[in-house]
């Protein structure tokens, strides 16, 4: 197990580093790979325009994309394990939408960027989580259809609230909020990096709970009979994941389907063991979103598009395939 863990961590760590390098090196300013290597090795002057672009714009953006990708992939993995449903992920369940509503309310109320707005986002995500889980509670097995329908309903409801909030907000904020909602990494700056550091203890906590997550896959009673305190483990995982999602939604808006695509691919390759999947989702999710952001920046000749459009174009078809397969298996 430890040998596989080291191998996977090294392999996906390398993929993340390579994606990060591509994310920094490729862009409209025309800097070559050599220029970027020279900047990193300290051979290029720190005052050059390329150096400023790399250090001030692209590196923070790549760090944000990697962190958001890692968080959303991990969030999807946790929800899938807890609900024993491969279709569960923060965006589809409406958790991200709840965070967005909370964040916008926080912004409009003039709360501080940290911790005011993230706390408002966290409150929004927890409210949606309680409502969606309330819909499926009391059923002997978690009903996929009612849970997904609950998530879709909450997403639609959150969308309506967001539109209402936008319609009553000042015109100057509307464009900014709309772009942010579709998943936007352009507004991030290095001053916000400490906010992202709050995610590291969450990653660690979820890794520590990887074995209980494995046991929960066989069912809650089965896990309890194998020594898992199911209520405590579920509560810690749900609250931690909602907190992580709230933090990244505040930084980058709504980026959907990462939590569906990344764990699905990793599970196909590595199997269902969360002791491998947790670190793999962190590294793989980071690499995936850096590459999606790269596509978002370079695909359109008229300028960049929100990364949420790219992740939805990849994730939505996969969601439909998974839904079709899960219905066929029943």
């Amino acid at each position: 197990m430890i040998g596989r863990l080291v191998l996977i961590t090294l392999g996906l760590g390398l993929l993340l580093a390579l994606s990060g390098f591509l994310g920094i090196a490729i862009g409209p300013s025309g800097a070559s790979f050599g220029d970027v290597l020279a900047i990193f090795s300290g051979k290029a002057g720190s005052q050059s325009i390329t150096s400023t672009i790399v250090w001030q714009i692209r590196l923070p953006r790549v760090i944000l994309a990697a962190t958001v990708g890692a968080t959303l992939a991990l969030g999807g993995l946790v929800f899938q394990a807890l609900l024993r449903n491969p279709l569960a992920e923060p965006y589809i369940l409406g958790i991200s939408g709840g965070s967005a509503v909370g964040a916008i309310i926080g912004l409009l109320l003039g709360l501080s960027p940290f911790p005011g707005v993230p706390l408002a986002a966290f409150s929004g995500s927890m409210l949606v989580l309680v409502l969606v889980l309330g819909l499926v509670s009391g059923q002997s097995a978690v009903n996929r259809d009612s849970m997904l329908l609950g998530g879709v309903m909450m997403n639609a409801f959150c969308g309506a609230i967001i539109m209402f909030l936008i319609s009553v907000s000042q015109t100057s904020q509307v464009h900014q909020i709309l772009f942010w909602l579709m998943g936007d990494f352009t507004m991030f700056n290095t001053g916000q990096l400490p906010v992202l550091l709050t995610l590291l203890p969450c990653f660690l906590l979820i890794f520590v709970l990887a074995r209980p997550m494995n046991l929960l896959l066989a069912g809650h009673e089965s896990a309890a009979a194998l020594g898992v305190n199911v209520q405590l483990a579920s509560l810690v995982l749900l609250v931690t994941t909602s907190f992580m999602v709230s933090i990244v939604v505040c930084q980058s808006g709504l980026v959907g389907f990462v939590g569906l695509v990344v764990p699905h691919i990793l599970r196909m390759v590595l199997g269902p063991d969360h002791r491998l999947l947790v670190p793999a989702s962190i590294l793989g999710g980071g690499a995936y979103l850096i590459l999606c952001d790269l596509l978002a920046r370079t695909l359109s000749s008229t300028g960049e598009m929100p990364v949420g459009i790219v992740t939805a174009m990849i994730g939505a078809p996969l969601f439909i395939v998974l839904l079709w397969r899960s219905r066929r298996c029943r």
Binding site: Q80, A81, R84, N85, P86, A141, N214, L217, A218, G219, E221, S222, A225, R267, G271, P272, D273
Partner: peptide
């Protein structure tokens, strides 16, 4: 138990 979940089989 009588049955266990097979959604993510090990």
């Amino acid at each position: 138990p009588q049955q266990i979940s097979l959604d993510f089989p090990f």
